[in-house]
Design a protein around this nucleic acid. Sequence first.
DNA 1: TTGAAAGCGGTACCAA
DNA 2: TTGGTACCGCTTTCAA
Lengths: 357, 357
Amino acid sequence: MKPPSIKDIAQALSISIGTVDRALHGRSDVSPSTRARVLKKAEQLGYRPNLAARSLKLNRRVRIGIYFPRDIASFFDPLRAGVRAAASAFTGVNVELVFRTFPRLDEGDLELLATDAGEKFDGILVAPGNPDHIGPALNQIASRGVAVVCVASDAPRSERLASVAAHAHASGAIAAELFSRTIRKPGYLATITGELTTLDHAEKLRGFAANLAVFAPHLSLLPALESKEQPELAYRQATALLSHTPHPLGIYVSTANSIPVLRALEEKNLFGEVQVIATDLFLELVPYIESGKILATLYQRPFAQGKTALELLLRHLLNGEPPDTITRLAPHIILRSNLDLFTGYLAEVDDTANTGA
Amino acid sequence: MKPPSIKDIAQALSISIGTVDRALHGRSDVSPSTRARVLKKAEQLGYRPNLAARSLKLNRRVRIGIYFPRDIASFFDPLRAGVRAAASAFTGVNVELVFRTFPRLDEGDLELLATDAGEKFDGILVAPGNPDHIGPALNQIASRGVAVVCVASDAPRSERLASVAAHAHASGAIAAELFSRTIRKPGYLATITGELTTLDHAEKLRGFAANLAVFAPHLSLLPALESKEQPELAYRQATALLSHTPHPLGIYVSTANSIPVLRALEEKNLFGEVQVIATDLFLELVPYIESGKILATLYQRPFAQGKTALELLLRHLLNGEPPDTITRLAPHIILRSNLDLFTGYLAEVDDTANTGA
DNA sequence: TTGAAAGCGGTACCAA
DNA sequence: TTGGTACCGCTTTCAA
């Protein structure tokens, strides 16, 4: 049967559809009695508003600014693709996406945000580096009435509306558990991260250290190396690290910057001797997983992050839904045996269905 | 700016919107020349049809029958929830869901489908057991013009439009890889499944055996035990299995029917001696993972399966999009360290954002 | 406080 | 082959 419309309600009560609309939305200037009658009848008929009609009439348009870094394109490109996918899935809404790019996390971001102060965005997505640096800027933007959503990492004490990221603590914990089950002899492990001022990076390390202490007391942990996402620096650090005797039994690379580390291992001929857990997935990493040279990579599902973040922002902006403040996606553990399920999407875009939801 | 509408195209060419509509849709009775002019102008203006207006006008309604078993509710209930979620996300479409329940996989399904032969569904979702049994029934339904989508398992040589399931072969392969990295001493492994006539179950076993042979030549494999999803049978089989000396070094339970097996292990006091990999996640399983008594469970993401399946079916029915014939979701590997990310959803519903997409 | 009516963009029907 | 127009359900403005 045809679902009931406001017309049906109006007819049943012999009033006009205008009055029904006002009553349903609790607008001013409706007598309490008719209001009650309308609400009751709507309930009784099982009235559900027709969203197509509503959005056709309202014809909302929304402008969103997206601030992501250029570096680590293997992560941020699929993140952008996820944002686009979410935008096009929103039927009946005119979503304008303005992509802005700064050089790298915690570098050039403030300047770019300042440049764009004149833009009138309804909301922005931003990948924050150091929360202490970017927090005040986000607060200022938020105070202008712009909805701010953090993606990929977080700036917890800022006025951001919400944040979407992979569960960093769990990523670290998983790495620790995998090492603890794989490495039997006593020794030490190393970690290479981006910058510990980035919340996501610090959180991974905390998860790693905490779980290592509990599950693998035979493995000790070196202080984390900060590669600042720079390949050359990571390479030098890894080379220095591997020159020690005895060498570490495992290395956890907690950002996508793993290739230089693997190159260092190759040169020192230490594959097999040193277990590696990497982060994220991109073409150059595939052969290392296929050949068993690395134990696993922890996939942060950038596409899903971008899609989730924009969906949440649009639902807030358009429907007034209060968003979950903190959304943390479960990272996928990619091993040799399930690698194939994820490689198809390196060229493509959508990990929501086939690898994700 | 306001996006261009058919009116803008009509105005620019000094023709009527009716003609524009016909030209855009390649309907009959439009002169090739005007057709070309319209298409060119649409392209030039960047015309995108307003979906809200379209669905308001068309006001489509769609009836979907959903045939799932009652047994293994921990799996099929979230599957149903995912279906409902997908339905309510489709704005501007009146989707009627008719849930039908048969006793268990490959039991009572044919009778139920026959009973419903009079129902006029636009499409159905069905969890197939034995493809040889259900295939002809699905073919018959499909021949009546009903779109048939298989969920959770598949009936590959039937006339189903598409199939959505967890990647069974990868599940088995992952289990094999985890065992191969965890169990060092030589011995044998056992597997308990539902029925090998169910494609999903057989496929898991194939993935398991194939990868075990390659990565763990020190581990041999017993013939699979078929518990037919019956707890008592699984318990008896596990008890018998564990009475042998030497006992198996690991057991892969490839369906949700793992609790009886764990009970048998408990009684034989073999936790720690025998590694276990389970399938799916439900409340009773949580303490076993928390305490480290089982190595991992392979989560088939039922919610995401249901959501994906209905989305795909509706897109086909409403937009005529040719669906991916085969969709295989990547199973989540749940360990002690990432268990928390999934338990929140045992009570709730949506694993798309926080655990999935 | 309420009623009446215009109009959002697209589709489909009838008339020309 | 084309033009003109009613209508889908809702929101909003203007009048009463």
